[in-house]
Design a protein around this nucleic acid. Structure first.
Length: 384
DNA sequence: GAAACCGGGTTCTGCCATAATT
DNA sequence: AATTATGGCAGAACCCGGTTTC
């Protein structure tokens, strides 16, 4: 559970803080000065930050609601100038669905345009989401997580078509639910955009000599719920790149993509390129053959997800412990465990003088519980 | 009864640029 | 011309345990 999620948690808020501090002074210069200091020197008509005045009573009411007006202004300045808005209706609506005052304020701060939606619109949209989610609170948690996903589009028709389209792909209800939980932006894409991605995947299948494009697309989507919020350019480029970069047959590529390889399509083009290049270099320096690289990727595509530094440190710590490259290539799943985890296990095993040559390296590919149990048994037998 | 095989779970927003509206 | 709607991007693994096999 920690791992990746913790990384994201730690990463994101710091990035937000960074933007907040950097962007605010910029705003003070561009937005604050004309209002305060320029009244004497200029007529409002030719000042650069073209704009009417902000709606003071709106600002007041937002402030009263606890909205971070500074943040809102930085994100969508135009909204603050509007004469007609529905912040009270939005607030009441969200409260009615169980959102706290704080959550409502945070939502508006991060996606101010939300207050331009009418109450009828909100009711409609909510009803559509409820068609997929079991409870209001589930939706609230997603809207709180990503206000933009819910509010960015005002096109409820499109949303409805999207739900129908996604359902028509043959994904089961569970997949659909998971997709909309984890990648809610998929909802707000235009149906056309989603359709384009599905068509791209079907085309790729046909190009690679696949028999059943529909099921290929479905397989990739259900294995990679984020695929529909990637650009077709990214996915296309990655597939073409994989095809061109090593001697993988069409059939092998097809199987890899609809198997464990579905996720590597998410990688940015540059990242994939860099990771593959560094992987090839590293393996070459360890005197592996090209075919070893190919087999590694087919057998364990996720290896391309691992950044060069992480990958190198994992390989190095395994090799240093007396494990051969051949063993790693035969059991690449050991690379899935964090460097810390691996290092720790290697240490404990070396205390017991575990012989990898004799016993293999499967012991590293085990859940914590099983590993500990195994160690326990080993130390018991060695005591006797 | 342990080891190996195998697949599954978790996870993804907030910002920017541009097209489309009004 | 301003505002809204939409598309696209960067960021970068880890762990668990049911079932089968020996």
């Amino acid at each position: 559970m920690p791992g990746f999620r913790v990384l994201l948690r730690l990463h994101r808020p710091s990035a937000q803080a960074f933007n907040f501090f950097v962007a605010s002074p910029a705003h003070l210069i561009s937005g604050g000065i004309p209002k305060g200091l320029c009244t004497v020197t200029t007529n409002a008509s030719d000042t650069k930050p073209s704009s009417g005045p902000e709606n003071e009573s709106l600002l007041e009411s937002l402030t009263f609601m606890g909205v971070d007006v500074k943040m809102a202004r930085q994100r969508q300045p135009g909204v603050l100038r509007k004469i007609i808005t529905n912040e009270q209706g939005l607030s009441d609506f969200l409260h009615g669905k169980g959102a706290s005052r704080k959550v409502v304020a945070s939502i508006i701060s991060r996606y101010p345009r939300a207050i331009t939606r009418t109450s009828e619109h909100l009711e409609q949209r909510w009803a559509l989401w409820r068609g997929v989610f079991q409870s209001d609170s589930k939706i609230i948690s997603i809207v709180d997580r990503s206000p933009e996903s819910f509010f960015r589009s005002s096109d409820n028709d499109n949303l409805e078509k999207n739900i129908l389209f996604l359902g028509s792909l043959g994904l089961n209800a569970k997949d659909l639910h998971r997709m909309l939980t984890t990648a809610p932006r998929t909802f707000s894409n235009s149906v056309e955009l989603n359709r384009q991605m599905v068509e791209l995947l079907e085309d790729v299948c046909a190009e690679l000599g696949g028999e059943d494009p529909r099921q290929f697309a479905k397989a990739i989507i259900s294995r990679n719920l984020y695929i529909l919020i990637r650009s077709t350019k990214r996915v296309r480029t990655n597939i073409d790149f994989l095809k061109a970069s090593f001697k993988i047959s069409d059939h092998e590529l097809l199987e890899t993509l609809q198997g464990n390889g579905a996720e590597i399509l998410d990688l940015s083009n540059e990242y994939l390129r860099r990771n593959l290049k560094r992987l090839q270099e590293k393996l070459k320096s360890l005197s592996c053959q090209k075919v070893d690289v190919k087999n590694l990727i087919i057998c364990y595509p996720t290896v391309l997800f691992i950044g060069p530094d992480t990958l190198n440190s994992k390989l190095d710590c395994l090799l240093k412990a007396g494990i051969s490259m051949k063993q790693i290539l035969e059991k690449p799943k050991v690379l899935e465990y964090s460097t810390e985890n691996l290092t720790g296990r290697l240490q404990e095993l070396s205390k017991l003088q575990y012989d990898f040559k004799k016993n293999g390296i499967n012991i590293l590919d085990m859940s914590r519980k099983r590993f500990d149990a195994r160690l326990e048994r080993m130390s018991l037998t060695s005591d006797k």
